[in-house]
């Protein structure tokens, strides 16, 4: 099967998934005891029974739940996620404003996690049982045990408060006029701590995974063949061990994208990063369920797209897969 036809197949397969995710998420959000009308009524202070029900009627909240669901499908079919009840703008607009910076944060974190994780895992596996392995194993196990928001706070204490090297939060200097390389550098200064905080847990995961899958590969016969060819240690390690160990790592990397996206909610809060995570937080405080539903669906959508990309990458990495399908 070619990559293109596989892509088509995956997109087709995603359609029912999206449909079920929409329905399921809709019902999850319906579990809420109160609704936005109650909230607005309560926050405006002087609400009457009639005023609240009038509001409910205008938002369509008084109709039966299935009708609301069908109405929501209709909205989605027009590529809209509905109107935010709290901010009174289309949800898509709110999300579009925040999604890029979350993708930037998540993308940087995944790249960092993969690069550092695979490197650390390779060093551990090639020195398995020796002191280098023990030390790195201990370090990764500690990283694996630290909550990302706490490591974020520790990074702030050390690098922003004590040393003053990096900013404590935000995405860029307000009113900055920097351009070109210095602009990138400045963005980088803001990006570094949050992406490290978000990546730390996944660095540990990929390092441990790379180590164990390399040890698995080292035992395989084809590595012995490679040595028997007269290849040196580096050629054997890179071409025949690391290369093959990347296959399970890529599968796992795909499975963790949803997790990293979830982790961004907390890390963005710690660093006041203006992304989807902060938007979620704001939506929760405002009880804006339409917005919350929109965020949930957008994240699921991002995960689906990412999984499709990982699936295709996996096929490139492992030529056996196409034959089996």
């Amino acid at each position: 099967m070619t990559l293109l036809s596989r892509l088509g197949f995956l997109l087709l397969k995603a359609v029912p998934t999206v449909f079920i995710v929409v329905t399921l998420s809709f019902f999850f959000v319906q579990l809420a005891p109160g609704d936005i009308a109650d909230y607005i009524a309560a926050s405006s202070g002087a609400a009457t029974e009639e005023g609240t029900s009038a509001l409910r009627e205008s938002l369509g909240l008084d109709r039966p739940i299935l009708e609301q669901l069908l109405h929501y499908y209709g909205t989605l079919a027009q590529f809209s996620l509905g109107q935010s009840m709290r901010f009174d703008v289309p949800v898509t607009e709110l999300i579009a404003a925040r999604l890029p910076s979350t993708l930037l944060l998540v993308g940087t974190s995944i790249t960092l996690a993969l690069a550092l994780g695979i490197a650390a895992g390779a060093v551990m596996a090639l020195n398995a049982g020796r002191s280098k392995d023990r030390l790195l194993s201990a370090v990764t196990l500690v990283l694996y045990s630290i909550p990302s928001f706490w490591i974020g706070l520790m990074l702030i204490i050390v690098f922003a408060v004590q040393l003053g090297w990096l900013p404590t939060g935000g995405a860029e200097k307000i009113g900055s006029r920097a351009s070109g390389f210095s602009y990138l550098l400045e963005r980088g200064r803001y990006l570094l701590l949050p992406s490290l905080a978000l990546a730390s847990y996944y660095i540990a995961i990929y390092a441990r995974l790379t180590r164990s899958s390399m040890l698995e590969v080292i035992r395989q016969d084809h590595v012995r063949t490679a040595v028997a060819k007269g290849l040196n240690r580096w050629q054997v390690s890179l071409r025949h061990i690391v290369r093959n160990a990347l296959i399970p790592v890529s599968t796992m990397a795909g499975m963790h994208i949803a997790g990293i996206l979830g982790g961004a909610v907390v890390v963005e809060t710690v660093f006041s990063w203006p992304g989807m995570g902060r938007l979620t937080y704001e939506a929760i405080n405002a009880r804006d369920y339409v917005l919350l539903l929109g965020i949930l669906l957008t994240s699921a959508f991002v995960v689906i797209i990412a999984n499709i990309l990982v699936d295709l990458l996996h096929r490139v990495l492992d030529p056996r897969i196409g034959a089996r399908a």
Partner: peptide
């Protein structure tokens, strides 16, 4: 299982917990 792996767990958790008491 696939569907549950598609929805980011922590986002779902945040939504659920905030929606319920």
């Amino acid at each position: 299982i696939e569907i549950f792996q598609t929805i980011p767990g922590f986002v779902l958790l945040v939504v659920l917990v905030s929606v319920l008491e």
